[in-house]
C-alpha cells in the first residue's frame, strides 16, 4: 500500500500545479500576441493586396493541387530509392575509409577524395554536370533519363555526407569496446561488424534522420533537369496561370512531407539521450 502523502508534499504539489497553470496561460497569451503581430504586420504591408492575389489565389491552388501531387509522387519515388542507395553507399564509403593495411591505401585515398569532392560541390552544379554532361557523351548503355541522372547526382552528394556521419559514429564507439572484442579473439573485421557498427549505427540514427529531412526537399532539385516533379509542375502551372500560387502549394506539400520525419528524428534523439543519461532532472 502506498503510504499517505505528507502535508509538505501536498503543498509542494499544489504549488507546482499552480505554476504549471500559470506557464500554460503565459505560453498561450504569448503565442496569440506573436501571431497577431505577424498577421497584422503582413496584411498591413502596402503590397499585401497584390501579393495575396499572385501567391495565395484559392482558385489556382485548387486547380494546381492534383497536378502538383502527381509531381510529388515522382519526388517520393526518387526519395525512397535515393535514401536506400545513400544509406548503402555511405556505409560502404565509411567502412572503406576505416580499412587498415597497406594494400588498402589507394582505396582509403580514393574514398577521402570522394567525400572531399562531393561534400564540397554544390548540388545544383553536379546536377548540371551529370544531367547534361553524361548524356552528351552518347555512351551505349548509359541512362539518359532525367530522373535517373538527377537521382544519381543527389545520391553521390548525400552519400558523401552520410559516409562522414557513419564514420563519426564509428569513431564515437569507445576504444575500450574494440579492446574488449579483440581480447576475446575477434578479428579486426569481426570487431567492426559485430561490436563497433551496431553501436555506431545506434549513435548516428538521429543525425541520419536529420539528413533524411534535408534529402526530402532536395529531391525537388531534379526539376532543374526537366524531370516533371512537384517543383517542375508548379513552375509550369505558374507560367500558364501567370500566378505564383502553385509554388506555395508545392512548398506546403514538401513541408507536410517533412513534418513526420522531423518528429521521428526528434523522437530518436530524445530516446538516444534517455538511454545515455537515465534519470536526472536536467
Amino acid at each position: 500500500m502506498v503510504p499517505p502523502v505528507s502535508e509538505v508534499e501536498v503543498a509542494r504539489r499544489s504549488y507546482r500545479r499552480s505554476r504549471q497553470r500559470r506557464s500554460t496561460w503565459v505560453a498561450v497569451a504569448s503565442t496569440l500576441v506573436f501571431a497577431a503581430v505577424l498577421v497584422v504586420g503582413t496584411v498591413s504591408a502596402p503590397g499585401w493586396q497584390r501579393t495575396q492575389e499572385s501567391f495565395l489565389d484559392p482558385g489556382v491552388a485548387r486547380r494546381a493541387l492534383p497536378l502538383v501531387l502527381e509531381g510529388l509522387w515522382l519526388n517520393l519515388r526518387v526519395l525512397v530509392v535515393a535514401a536506400v542507395c545513400v544509406l548503402a553507399l555511405g556505409l560502404v564509403v565509411a567502412l572503406l575509409r576505416t580499412l587498415r593495411g597497406p594494400v588498402w591505401a589507394p582505396v582509403r585515398l580514393l574514398m577521402t577524395l570522394y567525400t572531399d569532392v562531393f561534400r564540397g560541390m554544390p548540388l545544383i552544379v553536379l546536377l548540371y554536370i551529370i544531367g547534361f554532361g553524361v548524356p552528351g557523351l552518347r555512351l551505349q548503355g548509359v541512362p539518359t533519363d532525367k530522373v535517373v541522372l538527377g537521382a544519381t547526382a543527389i545520391i553521390l552528394i548525400y552519400s558523401a555526407y552520410v559516409a562522414e556521419v557513419f564514420r563519426a559514429g564509428i569513431e564515437s564507439v569507445h576504444p575500450s569496446q574494440r579492446a574488449a572484442a579483440r581480447a576475446l579473439g575477434l578479428t579486426h573485421r569481426q570487431t567492426t561488424r559485430l561490436v563497433v557498427l551496431p553501436q555506431a549505427v545506434r549513435n548516428v540514427t538521429p543525425p541520419l534522420l536529420n539528413d533524411l529531412v534535408a534529402l526530402q526537399k532536395d529531391v525537388g532539385l531534379i526539376s532543374v533537369l526537366g524531370a516533371i516533379d512537384a517543383v517542375r509542375q508548379a513552375q509550369i502551372l505558374s507560367a500558364t496561370t501567370a500566378n505564383f500560387t502553385p509554388y506555395i502549394v508545392a512548398a506546403v506539400l514538401f513541408v507536410l512531407l517533412a513534418v513526420p520525419t522531423a518528429r521521428l528524428a526528434d523522437w530518436a534523439t530524445a530516446r538516444a539521450r534517455r538511454r545515455q543519461q537515465a534519470g536526472g532532472l536536467l
Binding site: A183, G185, T187, P198, R202
Partner: peptide, 20 residues
C-alpha cells in the same frame, strides 16, 4: 595476434561489456 588472444581471457576494470 588474434590466435594468441584466443588463448587468453581478459577482464577489464570498467567491465567493457557490449551494451548492444
Amino acid at each position: 595476434a588474434d590466435a594468441v588472444r584466443r588463448r587468453i581471457g581478459v577482464v577489464f576494470q570498467a567491465y567493457n561489456l557490449f551494451p548492444h
